[in-house]
Amino acid sequence: MSSPTPNDARWVPWRVAPASGFVVDDPTGRGEVDIAQIDERQFVVRNAFRFSHPDIEEYLVEQLIDRGTPEPQARRAVDAARTFVPREDNPTDLASIPRFLRWFENPYGRHSLAALIHDELITGTANSGALGSDTLSDRFFREMMRTSGVPWLKRWIMWSAVALRTRWVAGGWRRLSVAVWLLLSVAGISAAIGSTGALLFGWPWPTSSPAVSLVFSLLMIFVAAPLWGRQWAASLVAAVAALWLLPAAIVAYFAYALYLLSEKVARIVGLT
């Protein structure tokens, strides 16, 4: 793997997380990523950066070799995957965080450079990025967030979100498995909330034993996990996080929808 040398003064550690492994092509030596806003939602990155971490790079190479890729080709693929080359035709919204979830995480932060590289690896067609595997690209995203200092639970939640997208885009039985998992998750979360309310607050519940319903709903998390295949761990994280993320996200979604409606009414009555 090629990597910056001590004499290459242009490549300096990313100032946001100097020990992350990210190095930036910055002639000023400050380790800054130059980002310009080009419209209301899109930005362009003006300088190159790359991720340099021997252990993670070797892990990716080994994974590609195990998939049948010759070693020289695998090393070239990983070198391309870990490097972000700026182009005017690759605008970004940074991390694609829905507005109603930005109370949990912003589009920018310690995960920013990992998200930018991940976006380059995930294209409109499944498994067509530099690594030839969206699943492996998702794991690479998680590892880049780890070295950047993103807390354990947050990076695993973000990983489970991109893993869910990967299985959906793959289509076929993988998409069907996601649909079944979502149905089971909605049923399990509803049962968990309802039975907990029945136990703690006396909410009406259709069975005489809400405790049994609560245990059953929690067991559904593990029963449904195999529907994610090799990414079953992402299923567990997503299901547990959804127990508290989803209700808050629903409230935030409707609150934001109410704001948009208020703005529309303001325009109708001529307020500017």
Results as ranks from 00 to 15, higher is better:
Val44Cys: 01
Trp156Ser: 03
Leu261Asp: 12
Val44Ala: 01
Val150Thr: 02
Arg102Phe: 02
Arg82Phe: 07
Trp228Ser: 07
Leu245Asp: 07
Arg10Tyr: 05
Phe104Lys: 14
Gly124Ile: 12
Gln42Glu: 14
Leu60Ser: 10
Thr125Ile: 14
Val240Asn: 01
Val150Met: 01
Phe222Met: 06
Ser208Pro: 07
Asp93Cys: 12
Asp25Lys: 07
Tyr59Met: 13
Arg41Thr: 13
Val78Asn: 03
Ile97Gly: 04
Val223Tyr: 11
Arg46Ser: 04
Leu246Trp: 10
Trp228Lys: 00
Glu57Tyr: 09
Pro18Val: 00
Thr147Cys: 00
Ala233Cys: 09
Ser213Val: 07
Gly270Met: 09
Arg41Pro: 04
Ala126Arg: 11
His118Asn: 10
Val240Ile: 15
Glu58Gly: 01
Gln231Ile: 05
Ser213Gln: 06
Ser160Trp: 01
Ala234Asn: 14
Trp173Leu: 13
Val186Thr: 15
Leu260Cys: 10
Pro247Val: 05
Val240Phe: 08
Pro107Gly: 01
Arg87Ser: 15
Ser217Gly: 10
Leu64Trp: 06
Thr272Lys: 12
Phe84Asn: 00
Arg46Ala: 09
Ser3Ile: 06
Ser112Phe: 00
Leu121Gly: 02
Asp93Arg: 15
Val186Asp: 14
Gly172Trp: 00
Leu184Glu: 07
Leu176Arg: 14
Leu182Asn: 13
Thr196Asn: 02
Arg30Trp: 04
Leu219Ser: 12
Asp119Gln: 09
Trp159Lys: 00
Asp25Phe: 00
Asn90Met: 11
Gly29Trp: 05
Val85Asp: 11
His118Gly: 03
Trp244Thr: 06
Ile122Lys: 01
Gly21Trp: 05
Phe216Met: 12
